[in-house]
Design a protein around this nucleic acid. Structure first.
Length: 294
DNA sequence: CCACTAACCTGTAGGC
DNA sequence: TGCCTACAGGTTAGTG
């Protein structure tokens, strides 16, 4: 479900409710998600204040008053929502969730302005993870991540460095979180289409002999933050069940050029191509065989 | 170290 | 309606 734009959408939707809130209680309905909750996880959160909620790649980072960070990954189907509160007007899309069998974490909050709130983490497939780390230390989760694509650290030269020895298809290289952090199956296909690069091209072919990025790689490095920023502006993409913290669906799925559009016409102006679906490393890739060059 | 596959787990859509 | 298969936004252990 969630790639960088969806996680950022969740972060923004949670921020007004959690920042400044005291964690009064934490109830775990099972002992693990994809990985076990760390020992003493619930007790370590209780009594602490969430000072800020930040994001790194696809991870949510709840910065706590204890100097620790509660780190959460949504996996494929993870979601946060609130229960028993009056939602703001912009939350008009919210529909109460009646099926609670996948509610794994229930957090009781006391917000200085909003009062008591119940925040629930649900995750049907349980590919999500939660952990507690020291705020000022790199953790196993986020220590090896590549550059954040929406930061000024991210540029074509940086990508060229990471691509230069890779014979793997550029699709796979972009999914590797150590190369670029935050892209997933949707936005890799969309970014490659914008850069007019076929997903099967070897990553190193986009790097010049001198080690500098090719013109095509510069296009790709520009397309990545552009498509991610646009997707955030539309609240991310909802394919099946993605919802932000206030229950709203994303709408960027209506603006996909290639993802999940097999057999449909390529939207590039003047292009006569038809979107094709192939499988790379076990996952669907969508592209236009006419305007995305090998 | 790198690259690739299978596995984790549940829900749903589509074919028959 | 039911049964079966394929597939789904992600990561990572295991293998070569």
């Amino acid at each position: 479900m969630p790639e960088l734009p969806e996680v950022e959408t969740v972060r923004r939707s949670l921020a007004p409710y959690v920042e400044g809130a005291l964690i009064e209680s934490v109830k775990l309905n099972r002992k693990d998600l994809r990985t076990p909750f760390p020992r003493g996880f619930a007790k370590a959160l209780e009594g602490k204040t969430i000072e800020r909620i930040e994001r790194r790649a696809k991870y949510l980072l709840f910065r706590l008053s204890s100097g620790k960070t509660w780190i959460a990954h949504l996996g494929m189907t993870g979601s946060f929502r609130f229960k028993d509160i009056t939602l703001d007007k912009q939350s008009r899309y919210f529909e109460p969730v009646t099926d609670e069998k996948h509610d794994h974490v229930v957090v009781g909050l006391k917000h200085p302005k909003r009062g008591r709130l119940t925040m629930i983490f649900a995750d049907a497939r349980r590919f999500g993870t939660m952990n507690l780390i020291e705020t000022d230390e790199a953790s196993a989760e986020i220590g090896d991540l590549g550059p954040e694509p929406l930061s000024n650290q991210f540029n074509a030269a940086e990508m060229a460095d990471r691509f230069k020895n890779k014979a793997t298809p550029v699709k796979a290289a972009l999914l590797d979180q150590r190369v670029v952090a935050g892209l997933g199956n949707i936005y890799v296909s969309e970014a490659l289409h914008r850069a007019r690069i076929r997903p099967t091209v070897e990553a190193k072919k986009l790097v010049l002999k001198s080690g500098a990025p090719s013109r095509r790689l510069e296009d790709l490095a520009a397309a990545i933050p552009t498509v991610l920023t646009e997707a955030i502006e539309f609240g991310g993409s909802t394919l099946r069940d993605f919802r932000s913290g206030d229950g709203a669906e994303g709408s960027f799925q209506h603006r996909f050029a290639v993802y999940d559009r097999e057999g449909k016409p390529c939207p590039t102006p003047g292009c006569t191509g038809t979107i094709k679906r192939i499988v790379q490393s076990g996952r669907s890739t969508y592209y236009c065989p006419v305007c995305q060059k090998p």
